[in-house]
Design a protein around this nucleic acid. Structure first.
Ligand code: ATP
Length: 862
DNA sequence: CTGGCCTGGCTTTTT
DNA sequence: GCCAGGCCAG
């Protein structure tokens, strides 16, 4: 560490010649190069608008550290907002610096990095956390299940009246608004959550709405947006419930040797606060820390960075307060606005003021949007370098199907035009200066359709399938949400961590084996009677036996039926289950490939038969096969991501258990990996067919689009009440977050932006509702309309865009294909009575390709 | 205990 | 228009 500590920004700037050389070599503006080259030790904050090259600067900084400063890649930690972004960052580094480098740096989300830290260090804080290295990560569904059980068991609610989701969200708010939730009592947690809600984030009326509903279930007043949260009665009731739920929830997760998402961060912060040795170790390990999208960090995340950054050579954070869109889940803009500056007194701030991404027209549109903020943003000067033209279109459709049809047809047309242009190989841009609106060479992956709510994806996807345009729904959770997938994952979880109660209970009677609800209840009573730490321990590890002499080879797995308080018949079923799981666990302990373990699970449980009973047998079995494939491939991918591997000191050869735990961690944390699959991942690949498959139009939420960019962007559902959401309308902060969200969406577009809205839209399956155009679109129309020649196009929605054969074809949602009425009738239940194996496999393959390519399943040839 | 059929509640946004 | 939970017959 040299003495350059107290440098001011201007002193820190490298000499002009170096700067110039560097700029030329790496394609950076002066502003950007200044940030990139800031000498170590450096505490840098880059504040800049969309498309100004923040991520570009962050990547360049990494490159600079490695190439010019001789920093070892192992010592670099990059934190991104999504797993997708982490992967992209790795890809970019791989392209410029090779696979060895990109593999050696640590890149991941806060949660992924926290999980890795804990795998190695949790047991150092065992006294407080009571977790071991093979802990399970509970996803939202798992947490919800835990809360539901508590509501039913401890608060005497029925399964139906219980509303676990708002309570779970409230717990999550509490956790993300504190530095750490470890050892915090219910009262403190609740106060913290309430403060966060009051500060502006999101509405907290959900919890109270629920209480109200339960109390007076007859009145279905839907228009009640008045928040009961401010009423002391509401608070009191909530507090009463929360007191019980909070401590019970924490207890249950401890018993299950599990962390929820928020716990991962809390646990790491607790570790840093209490174990200097671990903190030092990690500070040394990652002496260079870089964080993208810093405006959306929570307090716990900020703390993680603060601890790691204390001794860092480089602490480099990048963000834009105008793009903060996660206030509703506890992100605090103050982290980038002021906290960073306050805590790191010698921090330098760099600003970037050029937008390299979008045309001037799109930049103007974006400006018009952000000016809608009620609490004005400190919008910095910010200019486009790309000349503008008629780049923004407003499209009105009759309803959501027509909207989808328009988008899909328009996409198809643009792709066709682009191909024509490319083929006729026009010898170059007729001199129109900086204006590059040619969509020549436009590829499907350069097009995105963005929307506010996930449900909108349905109509849009249907339109793309009908039009035969290949597409991916980014962030689609549906695969991991499937019953058969959850079942099998639950088996793996129990094998990995037998304390995992949620998974054990899911699996104990799937496939059904005569262990019903009553039996499970009795088993639980038995577990507490014999003071075993968990049901899993009692069933598989003889934790019911008082004497610990379990080495006796003749010992019984379970005691007598009488001791267990169940019938002999039930005991037989339970014993068979226990044996099955012990066997599976043995495999998991010795075989390092998760796919092999899965195969064992399927074999031991006769899962194929279980699946074959159902009518969607082929479909389901196909998913099982897919999961096995995924798990089989996982082993090699996981090797890349080991944080302790490259450090030099600890080259632990990975045990099968570690590999399995890592695979499961991946499943919980990065279920959006599917999306990455369809992206740039295979873009450099030789294999043309893979490349072809990776090229698809992207459908995603506005939230998921953060950080990305596309030549052509469609924003669907630009209607008041949807975008902006009617549910984020209780405070200026909430409304402003909607403004910023739309701003993010608009600024994803490089060349063309289509703002689509429907004059009527169906909610659920009911009657179409009349909708009005979003005020955001009005603002853009006003702003662009004034600027002389109207830059707004108004394409006609062609009537032919409507699906032609409305009555003869239906859309099969499970398979995502259009099914002809006749064919589906004659094809029977597609169950394949007389089908020989070959035909069945072919059909399955067609269906999965149909989804990825958008081609009608029946027309696919192999 | 199991499975099939019926009902109501639901839709912001995500690691 | 979907899914989880409830209800009921075997
Ligand atoms: N100096 C430069 N010259 C030319 N193009 C640049 C330059 N810097 C960045 N770009 C390009 O501008 C685009 C936007 O860059 P980048 O994604 O890094 O911006 P960002 O600030 O992270 O945006 P956002 O805030 O929207 O995520 C990219 O396509 C990038 O290649």
């Amino acid at each position: 560490m040299n003495n350059g500590w107290a440098q001011t920004a201007s002193e820190a700037i490298p000499d002009p010649q170096t700067l110039l050389n560097y700029r030329c070599a790496s394609n950076l503006s002066t502003q950007q190069a200044n940030a990139v080259l800031s000498p170590n030790p450096s505490f840098v904050r880059v504040l800049a608008g969309p498309g100004s090259g923040k991520t570009h600067v962050l990547v360049s900084r990494v490159q600079h550290l490695i190439e010019d400063e001789n920093v070892s890649p192992e010592n670099i930690l990059c934190i991104t907002f999504t797993n997708k972004a982490a992967k992209e960052l790795r890809n970019r580094l791989e392209r410029t610096m090779g696979a060895d480098v990109s593999r050696a740096i640590t890149a991941g989300t806060f949660h992924a990095v926290a999980a890795r830290i804990l795998r190695k260090h949790v047991e150092k804080v065992h006294e407080a956390l009571e977790r071991t290295a093979d802990f399970t990560i509970y996803d939202s569904d798992d947490s919800k299940a835990v809360v539901r059980d508590i509501l039913v068991e401890k608060l005497g609610q029925t399964k139906k009246s219980a509303a676990p989701l708002p309570m779970k969200n409230f717990i999550s708010s509490a956790k993300s608004s504190m530095k750490t939730s470890v050892n915090v009592n219910a009262r403190t947690a609740m106060d913290s959550a309430l403060r966060m809600k009051a500060r502006g984030g999101s509405s907290n009326s959900d919890v109270d709405d629920d209480d109200r509903r339960r109390k007076s279930s007859s009145s279905s007043s839907s228009s009640s947006s008045s928040s009961l949260s401010s009423s002391s009665a509401g608070i009191a009731l909530l507090r009463e419930q929360f007191d019980i739920v909070w401590s019970e929830y924490e207890q249950k997760l401890r018993e299950a040797n599990s962390f929820d998402f928020d716990d991962l961060l809390s646990a790491v912060v607790y570790l840093f606060e209490n174990r200097r040795d671990a903190k030092r170790y990690l500070q040394n390990r990652w002496s260079h820390v870089l964080v993208d999208e810093f405006q959306d960090t929570s307090l716990a995340q900020y703390e993680m960075i603060r601890h790691l950054g204390e001794k860092a050579e480089t602490l480099f954070v990048v963000g834009d307060a105008d793009q903060a869109i996660y206030g509703w889940r506890g992100a605090e803009v103050a982290n980038i606005r002021s906290r960073f500056d306050d805590d790191f007194r010698n921090a330098q701030t760099f600003r970037l003021t050029t937008n390299y991404r979008s045309t001037a027209t799109i930049v103007s549109a974006a400006r018009a949007v952000i000016q809608q903020s009620e609490i004005p943003s400190a919008l910095m000067s910010w200019d486009a370098i790309k000349e503008g033209g008629q780049d923004v279109a407003v499209v009105e459709a009759g309803d959501e199907r027509e909207e989808g049809a328009f988008i899909a047809t328009q996409v198809k047309q643009m792709l066709k035009d682009a191909e024509k242009k490319t083929n006729s190989s026009s010898t170059g841009g007729s001199s129109n200066g900086n204006r590059d609106d040619s969509l020549e060479g436009l590829r499907k992956k350069d097009i995105a359709v963005l929307y506010r709510t996930n449900t909108q994806a349905r109509a849009l996807e249907e339109a793309f399938v009908r039009a035969g345009v290949p597409h991916v729904v980014v962030g689609d959770q549906s695969f991991y949400g499937r019953k058969e997938i959850k079942d099998l994952i639950a088996y793996l979880r129990v094998a990995s961590n037998s304390s995992d109660g949620v998974s054990l209970r899911r699996v104990i009677n799937t496939p059904t084996r005569g262990i019903g609800e009553k039996t499970v209840e009795k088993l639980e009573e038995w577990v507490s009677r014999c003071e075993a730490p968990s049901l899993g321990a009692a069933l598989f590890d003889r934790a019911w036996a008082k004497n610990s002499d379990s080495d006796d080879p003749d010992h019984e797995i379970l005691p007598s039926a009488k001791d267990m308080g169940i019938t002999a018949r039930a005991r037989n079923s339970v014993l068979a289950f226990a044996k099955t799981l012990i066997e599976i666990r043995k495999t998991a302990d010795t075989v390092s490939n998760p796919g092999e373990v899965l195969k064992k699970v399927v074999a031991m449980t006769d899962y194929e038969n279980h699946v074959k009973d159902k009518d969607d047998a082929n479909e389901r079995w196909g998913h099982v096969a897919e999961l096995i494939q995924l798990a089989t491939d996982a082993e090699e991918n996981l090797a890349e991501n080991d944080i302790e591997g490259g450090g030099g000191t600890n080259t632990t050869s990975k045990s099968p258990k570690t590999t399995l735990a890592a695979f499961l961690e991946g499943v919980s944390l990065l279920s959006s990996s599917e999306a990455t699959h369809g992206n740039e991942m295979f873009d450099d690949e030789e294999d043309e067919s893979r490349k072809e498959r990776a090229d698809a139009v992207k459908l995603m939420t506005l939230h998921a689009s953060k950080g990305a960019e596309f030549d052509v962007v469609f924003i669907a559902g630009c209607e008041d009440g949807l975008t902006p959401s009617a549910r984020a309308n209780e405070s200026a902060e909430e409304r402003d977050e909607e403004v910023r969200l739309f701003y993010v969406g608009v600024t994803r577009a490089k060349k063309k932006l289509y703002l689509c809205h429907a004059s009527t839209r169906r909610r659920f399956g009911s009657k179409p509702e009349v909708r009005t155009r979003s005020p955001f679109v009005d603002a853009i129309a006003d702003a662009l309309g004034q600027s002389g020649n109207s830059n707004i196009l108004k394409p006609k929605v062609p009537k032919s865009a409507k699906p032609a054969r409305k009555n003869t074809s239906t859309f099969d949602w499970k398979k995502r294909i259009v099914v002809d009425a006749e064919e589906s009738a004659s094809g029977g239940g597609a169950g394949g009575h007389g089908d020989d194996e070959k035909a069945r496999r072919l059909r399955r393959a067609r269906q999965s390709v149909a989804k990825a390519t958008g081609i009608d399943a029946n027309s696919i040839e192999f």
